[in-house]
Design a protein around this nucleic acid. Structure first.
Lengths: 246, 246
DNA sequence: AGGCCGTCTTAACATAGGTTAACCTGTTCC
DNA sequence: GGAACAGGTTAACCTATGTTAAGACGGCCT
């Protein structure tokens, strides 16, 4: 039997524990996706308060989870291809945040009915799906740490470092950078600063030869410095390879 | 058959979706706890990097999840009785943070082996356990929002409001306050400020008649003002009762 | 071409919060 | 009783960041 290539879900947990899935289970996962949709303009895919009966897996592009307050938009999570963006809605049912596409995006939908079937008959696949939501929580914790510990320079550096690693897991990071279709305003929404201050920080990191963010492209000029400024330690991403938690 | 009273796990998801468990499932959960331990002094129960094969449920007292960096301690989550503190370790296996007792604490331990058995034979209980880890993630997101959106006054107000609601779920909040065995230093670690500034904020909220935090006791003087200052909306806690997501 | 619009950029000024350094209180322990 | 200690309190000073305002650049529509 030849292996399938899983066009919709091959990036799910790639570089993390994808290999804990058998080929059979990868096939089941791929077949869970019942519907595919594409958005070219920024689009609110799901809104806070929505009661949902299906979950969204990100196939191409980026998605932000946003909570709006007092007329401001706060980004509480960012997603890259392969992420099961709102798998948590399977158990929570209603959303506590908006799900918004960034740039051009392709998503797949999985009904909660079929996830229930998985839970009843596929304990290993179930554990892996659970695991993927726990990775999200680990990233949330690191964002909390980032916000409690770092100044604006560090936060932006940390964000760049994290995204580079996550895109690298799924084979989408270049040697020295990656595409990032976020405006400075959106970067500031993800770092808890104003866009004006984010502009200062972007310039500062560029001028100090650490990272250049412009025209939708992040170019890492000095990775060691970037990870130093962002106090970055990738262990919370639970990547494959040797255990390395300090 | 008389109902059991579940001395170890009766607070698990109390006030949230505990009633989605049958009496049989509540019994299974209670019997999962194989060992109980008590700490009277502050104690590091688990350390970042530990590879674990059991998870900890909090029976009495409070627990903090802490990440230490540059000689500082950052609190990324707080737990109250009934919380399955590190259920996420079941799938993640290694911890990305320390688990530390606050004040006098009683915990129970559940082996991952028995959790695997649950996953294989109890789909509904499995979904509820999964659900409980997703509530943690929802609280993480709210903390991210809190840190991105609010100044120090708001952060402390938000923390008080959240803890009051969570303790209320499990029947441990008084009409106007609750016991909180955290020092001002620890409050500051949870709010991303210095302890000196936390002192200023504690005083300010006391003097403005909103909340009084002293001698291990939080007294809410004006709940409406507290929730206004902390921009608090309890919907992310997914409490029982009518859906109310704005 | 001209005008509109979102994004980026910069400057001047205001303020929340960090830093350092003291001192004060209550408690424990000998 | 007094020393040692942890926690709380306050003050003076400094810096990162927010606020307001304005202009520059590029893309897109008519």
């Amino acid at each position: 039997m030849t292996e399938r290539d899983y066009p919709l879900t091959r990036r799910f947990l790639q570089g993390r524990s994808r290999e804990a899935l058998s080929e059979r289970e990868k096939g089941i996962l791929e077949d869970l996706v019942e519907d595919v949709e594409r958005f070219t303009a920024p689009h609110v895919i799901l809104e806070r308060g929505d009661v949902v009966n299906r979950s969204t897996i990100l196939i191409e592009g980026m998605i932000a989870r946003i909570i709006a307050q007092d007329g401001k938009r706060h980004i509480v999570a960012l997603h890259v291809p392969g992420d099961f963006v709102d798998l948590h809605a399977f158990a929570l049912k209603r959303l506590d945040h908006d799900v918004v596409s960034i740039g051009t995006v392709q998503v797949g939908y999985v009904t909660h009915q079929s996830l229930n079937r998985v839970l009843e008959t596929e304990p290993n696949l179930s554990r892996i799906l659970w695991y993927s939501t726990l990775l999200d929580a680990a990233m949330h914790r690191e964002w909390i740490l980032k916000l409690e510990l770092l100044d604006a320079d560090g936060r932006l550096a940390h964000l760049c470092a994290e995204l580079w690693h996550r895109l690298d897991f799924v084979g989408m990071a270049g040697e020295n950078g990656f595409a990032l279709p976020l405006t400075q305003k959106e970067l500031s929404d993800a770092c808890g600063t104003t866009s004006i201050h984010m502009n200062r920080v972007v310039r500062k990191l560029r001028e100090s030869g650490i990272v250049d963010i412009s025209r939708g492209q992040v170019t890492i000029l000095d990775r060691a410095a970037l990870e130093r400024v962002g106090r970055f330690d990738a262990s919370y991403l639970y990547g494959d390879g040797p255990l390395k938690l300090t």
